[in-house]
Amino acid sequence: MFGKLVKHEFRATRRIVPFVWLGTIVMAVLNLITGRIGIDWLFATSLIFLVILAVAQIILTYAVIITRYYRSLYSDEGHLTHTLPVRPSRVLASKTLVSFAWMISSVVMALVVVVVIATTIGSKNGYTLSQMYQEFRAAFAFTDGQMALVIGLFVVYVIYALLLQLAQIFFAISFGSQAVFHKLSIAAPIIFYLVFNFALEMIMLVATIFLPIGVEMQLDANGMPDSFSLVARGMFDLIRNPEQPQVVFGLGGIILSVFAMAGLFYGSYLLIKKHTSLR
């Protein structure tokens, strides 16, 4: 049943975003070609549209995810979703999986646009993409292994950040759609999203500073990163001793937010399971 839920979730969300992606790809190709052959006015125009489309596809992806979650669970369509012979946990899992797939795809598309723009603008200034990469690496004195680690950490962070955002969005919609908030209509999920997001950011900030766990970066004589190690210190230590030669990145906030993410998903599951609240 989970596979079928995923299939129909995908079907229900695939109608708009891929067309924007198609437009983005066309514009990216146009930008690359006009950059090469030197039609400046068309290059500039396509560059502007490329940036607009890159932003639009991310906004649209979020809009599709939000409206799909709300409509399928809390509007009239909920009469069908909630009477399917499937477990609420599967419903939530399928929505999470498909929404995450759309989100990560839109992030990849945005990265592709960044690469295209860097390539075209770089080539106009005599730089290749490879040269830009080498210069970035040299600026931080990273070895190839360290660069691979940085890229790996970036990918993990993007996945974590998207899942955390999804957990907040789903919970805010489920919580704000409870019968007691019906008078506020769609304003309730928006208000709750802002409130939960602000509260979580504040808690994460405090945890990052005060929880005694972090990554310490040793600097070499030139002030460049030399080595990293896990330490039982938070950033508060750095605030107290700003002159010390190491930099500490607090991990308390990230660790806490992983639990918060799990809590938000579980809360959404409970709200879907116990308090079906159709308008």
């Binding site: 229900a12 409509r71 399928s72 009239d76 369509e77 009469h79 069908l80 009477t83 399917l84 012979p85």
Partner: peptide
């Protein structure tokens, strides 16, 4: 019971 019940609500529940 959801597997054995065929329910028609008074609202349109299809997208």
């Amino acid at each position: 019971t959801r597997a054995i019940v065929s329910y028609l609500p008074e609202r349109t529940y299809l997208s």
